[in-house]
């Protein structure tokens, strides 16, 4: 490549060389995306298309492969009206996500502006704040939340064994608060729920914090200097410079939050989809559920993006 370019340099007319150069470069581009193309075709396109076929058929798995018998919308009907726990769980995951979405966005924005300031031991604080990024193993999250109170109970002497590692912690905490007799029941369970949610939110906002931190870093410092010369207080320059400059990233972070919460493997809906395929071996139903779920994700994503666009437009206008 290099030798040819050098050899050809003095002999060929300029215009032709430039054209072939551009074309040659474009051809090199294909080489760079070759692995990606292979992946998209063989590991994404083909399985996704097959799974779409599965969704409309009865799948029988044999010793050396599978056969499909088309059955129309039967699987979709089963997923929506026969297997009610799927519908319920899907709606719950969507609602849960919508409940967490503003909290995660606000928290990660706030935490990122904190991390962007200069103070002593900043590296330590940054390490701790980014720790959820490292530890947010789906398994770990359940595990930590589930086991923490259990061990506390163990330590305080009235050891109670919780039935499962997942999702019972708030019930325990609520019981604890109610039995302490200070708080009424509704307040106690609300507090317990909020306490759980704080942990979830902090754990779930790792990447969003990253997004906001890089956005904050990319604001040119000259802007602040100008503002300071013009006599703006730090508070004013935060709301007039920092916030508007990072505003576009709110959408990016929200989109990531939505995708992340819908596709996290701790998600209860995905668990059902998985169990339907690998424990009940009903692959057709599982595929139908998965596609309904995908449509739900796209719907929520589209809705949030639409609303946010309108909000941002109004803010800018």
């Amino acid at each position: 490549m290099r030798r040819r370019a050098q050899n050809n340099l003095p002999f060929k007319p300029k215009r032709r060389r430039l054209m072939s150069l551009a074309r040659k470069k474009a051809r090199w581009g294909y080489l760079f995306v070759l692995p990606l193309c292979c992946g998209l075709i063989f590991m994404f396109g083909v399985p996704a298309a097959r799974s779409a076929v599965f969704a409309f058929s009865k799948v029988n798995i044999g010793a050396s492969g599978y056969t499909t018998v088309p059955c129309g919308f039967d699987n979709f009907r089963d997923a929506l009206f026969v297997n009610t726990s799927f519908r319920e769980k899907a709606v719950i995951s969507a609602l849960n996500m919508l409940l967490n979405l503003p909290l995660i966005t606000v928290f990660s924005f706030f935490a990122a502006s904190l991390l962007n300031q200069k103070f002593r031991c900043r590296w330590l604080v940054r390490t701790i704040f980014f720790l959820p990024l490292v530890l947010s193993a789906p398994a770990l999250m359940n595990f930590e939340a589930g086991d923490a109170l259990r061990s506390m109970m163990g330590a305080s002497g009235n050891f109670k064994q919780s039935q499962s590692l997942t999702g019972l912690e708030s019930v325990n905490l609520a019981n604890l608060l109610i039995s302490s007799g200070v708080l009424p029941q509704t307040v106690a369970s609300y507090l317990a729920g909020a306490a759980d949610r704080i942990y979830d939110i902090v754990i779930l906002s790792g990447v969003q914090m990253l997004i906001f931190l890089t956005a904050l870093q990319s604001i040119p410092p000259t802007m602040y200097e100008v503002a300071a010369i013009e006599g703006a207080s730090a508070w004013e320059s935060y709301w007039r410079i920092t916030f508007p400059m990072t505003c576009p990233m709110i959408m990016t972070s929200m989109i990531f939050t939505i995708i992340d919460s819908f596709t996290a493997s701790t998600n209860k809906t995905l668990e059902i989809i998985r169990n339907t395929a690998f424990n009940s071996f009903n692959h057709g139903l599982s595929a139908a559920m998965a596609w309904i779920y995908t449509l739900l994700i796209l719907l929520v994503l589209g809705l949030v993006v639409m609303i946010m666009r309108r909000v941002v437009k109004r803010y800018e206008g």
């Binding site: 998209l40 399985p47 996704a48 097959r50 799974s51 492969g65 819908f262 596709t263 779920y293 995908t294």
Partner: peptide
């Protein structure tokens, strides 16, 4: 191509889990 890359991010892997599993099973 870039659109498809973003699509892989949005689609849960579980959607094409069974068929992918079979690809590697056989």
């Amino acid at each position: 191509l870039f659109f498809l890359v973003i699509l892989t991010l949005v689609l849960p892997q579980q959607t094409y889990m069974t068929t992918t599993y079979m690809q590697y099973r056989y």
